[in-house]
Design a protein around this nucleic acid. Sequence first.
DNA 1: CAACTACCTGGAGCGCGCTCCAGGTCAAGT
DNA 2: ACTTGACCTGGAGCGCGCTCCAGGTAGTTG
Lengths: 121, 121
Amino acid sequence: MIRYSPSEAAEKSGFSLDTLRYYEKIGLLADIDRTSGGRRVFSDDDLGWLSLLRCLRDTGMPIARMCRFAELARAGADTVAERTGLLEEHARGVEAQLELLLRQQRNLNDKIAFYRRQLAA
Amino acid sequence: MIRYSPSEAAEKSGFSLDTLRYYEKIGLLADIDRTSGGRRVFSDDDLGWLSLLRCLRDTGMPIARMCRFAELARAGADTVAERTGLLEEHARGVEAQLELLLRQQRNLNDKIAFYRRQLAA
DNA sequence: CAACTACCTGGAGCGCGCTCCAGGTCAAGT
DNA sequence: ACTTGACCTGGAGCGCGCTCCAGGTAGTTG
């Protein structure tokens, strides 16, 4: 049962220390263990949860929705269906996001090609 | 020489009226024509420029960099090399963005698959 | 020509997601 | 025992990109 300091958790998760504290404050991170002196101690499970949060953030899920998801996760196994639905809906958004990004990437590359032809002339 | 009202420009570009005015104020949109009464009139060129702005925004370029790009564009043809460089650098960022998004999309789909298996059991 | 809607300006305000700060506490090294 | 650096809390502040508002004007419609 490996246990991680706040700075290790920050490094491994890619969130800043301040962000980890903020996430705990707003309920995205529950039941983080503490030393007798009050310092946070992160477990492997916590890091796993953080990497899911990282995934959701990187794919553009708003904090409020992540809080909803976290709330469901805390509520236990009978929310699995709802959580699945939430992630599926998010996944559809991610798909749309990707399509837009790919389309605009093509436009961008076309524009660059156009500029390059201008430079060549 | 088709000319568009502000609301037409908004609809075609996907920016709000307020955003169009804001962009003009900060120098992203220069020399927008006006009626004698002071209303904006957008040309096809303006809409073309707006669609480039749309592309840059959709791919995550910060406003400040777009302003830099706009400044170069206003300066004329001898900034083409610099503009090309700016877009190329941005394109590299877009590529990285896409890779991250695709990676996290896979993680998300894995998570969904995991939940679905839980639901099936 | 009256009414109505679209548009104008300058400037304030907002929502998001952190980020920073002051003033302190804890714990590891020497 | 002392120093040092990581960590703590509560709360303020920030940067971005708009968005909204008040108070007024333009121009189209019946």
